[in-house]
Design a protein around this nucleic acid. Structure first.
Length: 273
DNA sequence: CGCCCATCCTGAGCGC
DNA sequence: TGCGCTCAGGATGGGC
């Protein structure tokens, strides 16, 4: 399940593989992947454009083309693969970008949850998906004051707040659990119950955990791999995610799994207050 | 406005 | 062996 660190790794791989190549044609094999514009406009506009660079905002991949930006979200299991045209397309290949190099950039997605949008370059920051995004989880962009404001009035559990992309962009279910463990905060604590020093700890944990995961090339739990097909390396650093019934490495108590905001949530009932 | 919940999807894992 | 059920979950939009 690609979160910010995994998308960052995919972005880096794609830049090496496809920057400077032109798209000659687009095949859409599962129409629900394309959110907007219409399928015909999507295909017609992309054909002929050059992929200048691939960037990232939150969990969204941004393909900067000659005139447009292709906004792509991998959701649960989306992947990009560069293949020669003679390699057979698998049944999970849903969108194919044919390149002037004779290769194909293929979008694969077992669950078909991923989405793509195309928008004019000068308007991409105004796309609804972009407008809703909060700050990137970096020391420069994620301000204490912003977190204080976002949390001070809400009754929602802090886990739900971390998953809310308007509060901070890029955190998903795995890193939310890891961040709360690192900050020693119970996932069911109401947002407004957090004290200032706890919010500072939380901010530090968000930045530290995400940075380290980026550094390790992301986490491979189920099926994630980057554009080169290589797996991430952060899974060996996980403290609670997927560790139900195992011992907490800090206090030796047993890691529990509960549901918070409809999401599987792992935590240590002794360390996380 | 804030928040909850269903929806989209398929494959893995499990019990019988 | 194979069937049917449950679970996994990010963003979105409807509804209260």
């Amino acid at each position: 399940m690609p979160e910010l660190p995994e998308v960052e790794s995919v972005k880096n791989g794609l830049n090496k593989l496809i920057s400077g190549k032109a798209i000659t044609n687009v095949d859409v094999l599962w129409i629900n992947i394309i959110k907007d514009p219409s399928i015909s406009e999507f295909k017609e506009r992309i054909a002929g454009q050059v992929i200048e660079a691939v960037k990232r905002r939150g969990k969204f991949l941004l393909f900067f083309l000659t005139d447009d930006v292709l906004i792509s979200h991998l959701r649960m299991e989306g992947k990009y693969r560069l293949e020669n045209t003679d390699v057979p397309r698998t049944k999970h290949t849903h969108v194919v970008f044919e390149l002037d190099s004779g290769e194909e950039l293929r979008y694969l997605d077992v669950r078909k949850f991923g989405k793509m949008s195309l928008i004019a370059k000068e308007k991409w920051t105004q796309h609804p998906s972009m407008l809703k995004l909060g700050p990137e989880p970096t020391n420069e962009e994620l301000k204490i004051k912003h977190l204080v404001n976002a949390l001070k009035k809400t009754e929602r559990p802090i886990k739900a707040c971390l998953l809310d992309q308007t509060i901070v962009a890029g955190v998903g279910n795995i890193y939310a659990d890891e961040i709360l463990y690192d900050a020693c905060i119970h996932p069911e604590r109401k947002g407004k119950s957090l004290q200032l020093d706890e919010i500072k700890d939380l901010r530090n944990s968000i930045i530290t955990i995400i940075n380290k995961a980026v550094d390790k090339g992301g986490t491979t739990i189920r099926t994630y791999s980057n554009a080169f097909g290589t797996e991430g390396g952060y899974q060996t650093y996980l403290s609670v995610y997927g560790k139900k019934d195992e011992k907490c490495s800090r206090c030796q108590h047993t890691i529990k799994k509960i549901k918070v905001a409809q999401r599987g949530t792992h935590y240590c009932p002794y360390c996380q207050k």
